[in-house]
Nucleic acid binder design. Structure first.
Lengths: 239, 239
DNA sequence: CTTGTTTAAATGTCAGACATTTACTAGACT
DNA sequence: AGTCTAGTAAATGTCTGACATTTAAACAAG
């Protein structure tokens, strides 16, 4: 894989990092491959070696690359990626050709974890948490059905689930909310055909909200499970 | 807070990063405080500005600091920390005066998550996973009881739980194994008085192992819950 | 009192030289 | 032939000094 296939970029090491990271996430390099040298990257994108090093530092911190003096830069395998690094979530968001294996892994995680989180939320939610959930739900409802508001709907969807994680009032669970955005955004690109099921999804979200509001942990658990069962269908994981 | 209270250091930006990170984790600075300037840090520890910048880059990536040109470096609050960053786990490990609130948060997370993980492990474990679990269990058993082998015992303990997360065969859950080390290491410093309960803990770990081996998900769940209930006592969270 | 300008101080960036690590190559010796 | 030993090239890592940019505060003009 060469750099030629990548789009141009403008401004900042962060942009460059995103560009390279998304190429890696899309699998343009195989694990074990040697990554282009600093100077080549700098020449190709017309940026200083500093910018390149800053970008590569981020990718290395995220577990995408492994650098050693003398040898060069190697591409690490998916199992070494720091999927919970917020930067990773940011890079994954908006990436259309994300590895299906990765999408499945994230979904499987959510399917096992989110019911528990919803249960905790039902126990720990404060008034402000309920408010966030209601606000997100209202946004989902208002943007449901129309095709042009799909992106907006996804944002409210993310907000709803993120509010659930926050309502658990646990520092660790809350960090994991970052994973929601890429997971839910992937859903947009996978299910651009159907529009009918949205009402269904909406009703299930409402049940989660109601269960948390009434502090019914087990009801929240099973309601969250139903939401995710629906998501699995939309993602094309099950039929 | 000044730098004077920190121990000296030798060699490498990573050492410096660990030093500063541990000071931050121990709460030596309040959130919102201004962190010392690059040049002051460099002068104090007799390192180049480069090393300081590399160290601060790591701390910033971990969510411990927030840097903006012109303003300076600010200390972020605990809610912004990237607790799931492997570097954080490394820094937290071996830190004696970790914030009790943090220990509780991590424990609460484990208490809610680990039963689920054990259940998944019972479904997905391969032969090599069982082997890892058995090997770790054997190590725990051989190092049980003796006071001088306490550190060794903790390592096997970490290995056992990490093997559980790995056995779930989910990329996301597996990442979370990093949190185990600081959590279990904190246990050493908190329960340096008792030695008797170790047999108890050992028996409970064995039940987890057996349940996973026999592919009994619900049994694995409740066994993991029992292990963590014991851990809560040893951590002094409940009595 | 408000607005605009200057000044100081902090982080960010650049460029070049140099250091260090690594892998490969060529040769000397047995 | 085989093996050890320089030696060389190439990559990342580091240092240094200067400069750029951003921010906040001081200060002056209206």
């Amino acid at each position: 894989m060469t750099l030629d296939a990548l789009p141009p970029h403008q401004g900042g090491a962060e942009q460059l990092a995103r560009l390279l990271a998304q190429a890696l996430l899309a699998g343009h390099w195989q694990p074990g491959d040697v990554f282009p040298r600093e100077l080549d990257i700098g020449k190709h994108f017309a940026v200083s070696r500093n910018q390149v090093r800053n970008a590569l530092t981020s990718l290395t911190a995220a577990g995408l690359l492994e650098r050693t003096a003398g040898r060069g830069t190697l591409v690490r395998e998916m199992g070494d990626w720091h999927l919970l690094d917020p930067l990773m979530s940011e890079w994954m968001t908006g990436l259309v050709d994300l590895d299906p294996q990765l999408i499945r892994a994230i979904y499987a995680f959510r399917f096992s974890a989110e019911p528990v989180v919803a249960g905790l939320a039902a126990q720990a939610a404060q008034a402000e948490d309920i408010e966030r959930l209601e606000s997100a739900y209202a946004g989902m409802k208002s943007s449901a059905g129309s095709v042009e508001a799909r992106a907006e709907h996804a944002e409210y969807d993310v907000a709803f689930h993120d509010a659930t994680y926050r309502a658990s009032h646990n520092l660790v669970w809350r960090q994991m909310g970052h994973l929601l955005r890429p997971s839910i955004m992937a859903l947009i690109h996978r299910s651009q055909h159907r529009t009918g099921p949205l009402d269904d999804s909406l009703a299930r979200h409402r049940q989660v909200l109601d269960a948390i509001r009434s502090r019914d942990a087990s009801a929240a658990e099973s309601a969250a499970r139903e939401v995710l069962r629906r998501t699995a269908i939309d993602l094309g994981i099950v039929s």
